[in-house]
C-alpha cells in the first residue's frame, strides 16, 4: 500500500428513514389490521387443530393432488398446528416491525474489567466466607470431601471396561462345520441340488444342532447365498471348482467392506451387488470384486452332498467372513 492513497472519510451512519406508519395514521391503521389478520389466522389454525383431533375420524382419507390419499385427521392437525404457530410468530414480527417504537439508540461499549473497589470487595468476601466455613481448621471434612470428589472423578473411567472383552477368535469362526447341512432361511428345510434350477438362488443358514438356538449374532456371520449357474460358466481355479457342486456355488452373504447382506443377484449378468455401497462381485470368477469399495472377494463355502443327497458344507469357511478387523489372520 502506498502512502499516497487517499484516506477514506468516515461515512458515518446512514440516515434514519422513518416508516410510513410513523407519520401516516391510515398506514398505521392498515398495519394494525394486518397484524390482527395474522393473529386471527393463527386462532383459526388452532381451531382446525382441535376440530381435527376431536371430530375427524382417524379412518377418513381425502385426496390431495400430488400427495395422493391423505389421512384427514392427521392432515388437519398438521396444517392447523402449522398455521397456529407460524401466524402467531409472523403477527408478532409484523407488529414489531411496523408499529413498535423505531428509535435508533446508541449503546456505548464499556470496559470488561470491573471497578477496582468491586474487585477488592469480592476478594474480601471470598476470604471472609472461607474462614467462616472453617475448611482450614476442620481437616476431617476437607479429607472426606476430597475422597468423595476423587471417587466421582474415577467412576467414568470405570465405564470404559464395557469396551471389552476382546472378541478373541470368535470373529473368525462361524457355525459352519464339516458336514453341516444347508437349510433354507427362514423355513429350515434342507436342500437337494435338484431343488435349484439354473438361474435360481436360495438364502441359506447352517442347520441347527438339536437344542441349539438361532441368535442374531450367528445369523450375522453364518448367512450364505446359494446360486446355481451352468457348470461351464465358471472361471474358477481347480480347487475352487471342487468347492462347487453341479454348478451350485455358495458365498458368504456378509459384505467384506462393511458387513451388509450382499444378496442383490442379477441373474443375467451374474453379478452380486451390495445394497449399501454398491460393491459388485462377479459370481463365476469366485465373487471377484469388479466395482466398489470391498477389499476382498466374498468368502466361498465349500459344498457337497451327504449320503441322503442333501447339500452340506465340505468344511468350515477357510477365512474370516465379513469386514476387515485388526486381528484378522487372513
Amino acid at each position: 500500500m502506498s502512502d499516497k492513497a487517499p484516506r477514506l472519510s468516515d461515512p458515518g451512519l446512514p440516515e434514519h428513514v422513518h416508516r410510513k406508519a410513523d407519520s401516516d395514521p391510515a398506514a398505521a391503521k392498515k398495519a394494525e389490521r394486518q397484524v390482527a389478520i395474522l393473529f386471527t389466522l393463527s386462532a383459526l389454525g388452532t381451531i382446525l387443530f382441535i376440530y381435527s383431533y376431536i371430530w375427524v375420524h382417524t379412518d377418513r382419507f381425502i385426496f390431495i393432488p400430488i400427495m395422493g390419499d391423505q389421512n384427514a385427521s392427521q392432515l388437519g392437525m398438521g396444517i392447523g398446528l402449522t398455521f397456529s404457530l407460524l401466524f402467531i410468530g409472523m403477527g408478532a414480527i409484523h407488529w414489531a416491525k411496523t408499529l413498535m417504537p423505531d428509535n435508533e439508540v446508541v449503546a456505548e461499549r464499556h470496559e470488561f474489567r470491573s471497578e477496582e473497589a468491586d474487585r477488592q470487595d469480592f476478594v474480601a468476601t471470598v476470604k471472609e466466607q472461607g474462614a467462616a466455613s472453617g475448611l482450614g481448621r476442620r481437616s476431617l471434612i476437607k479429607r472426606s470431601l476430597g475422597l468423595s470428589l476423587g471417587l466421582i472423578g474415577l467412576s467414568p473411567l470405570l465405564l470404559l471396561r464395557d469396551l471389552g472383552p476382546l472378541p478373541k477368535k470368535s470373529l473368525e469362526q462361524t457355525s459352519w462345520k464339516t458336514g453341516t447341512r444347508l437349510v433354507i432361511d427362514p423355513s429350515g428345510r434342507p436342500i437337494k441340488p435338484s431343488d435349484l434350477e439354473v438361474g435360481a438362488v436360495a438364502q441359506v443358514l447352517p442347520e441347527l444342532a438339536p437344542g441349539q438356538e438361532r441368535t442374531l449374532e450367528n445369523v450375522g456371520k453364518d448367512a450364505v447365498l446359494l446360486i446355481r449357474l451352468r457348470p461351464e460358466e465358471f472361471e474358477l481355479s481347480p480347487e475352487r471348482l471342487s468347492w462347487t457342486y453341479q454348478g451350485i456355488i455358495a458365498f458368504s452373504k456378509i459384505c467384506t467392506h462393511m458387513g451388509c447382506a450382499v444378496a442383490l443377484y442379477e441373474q443375467q449378468t451374474k453379478h452380486l451387488l451390495c445394497p449399501c455401497h454398491q460393491s459388485t462381485f462377479d459370481v463365476p470368477r469366485a465373487a471377484k470384486v469388479i466395482f466398489g469399495p470391498a477389499a476382498r472377494p466374498l468368502p466361498q463355502l465349500a459344498i457337497t452332498v451327504d449320503s441322503e443327497g442333501y447339500l452340506v458344507a465340505q468344511k468350515p469357511f477357510t477365512e474370516a467372513v465379513g469386514p476387515s478387523f485388526w486381528e484378522r489372520s487372513s
Binding site: 423355513s187 436342500i191 435349484l196 443375467q268
Partner: peptide, 18 residues
C-alpha cells in the same frame, strides 16, 4: 420364471404356499 435380472425362486426354494 425369473424375468430379466431377477433370479428364479423354484417351488422347492419357496413353496407354492409360501
Amino acid at each position: 420364471t425369473g424375468p430379466q435380472s431377477m433370479p428364479k425362486f423354484g417351488d422347492k426354494i419357496i413353496t407354492p404356499s409360501e
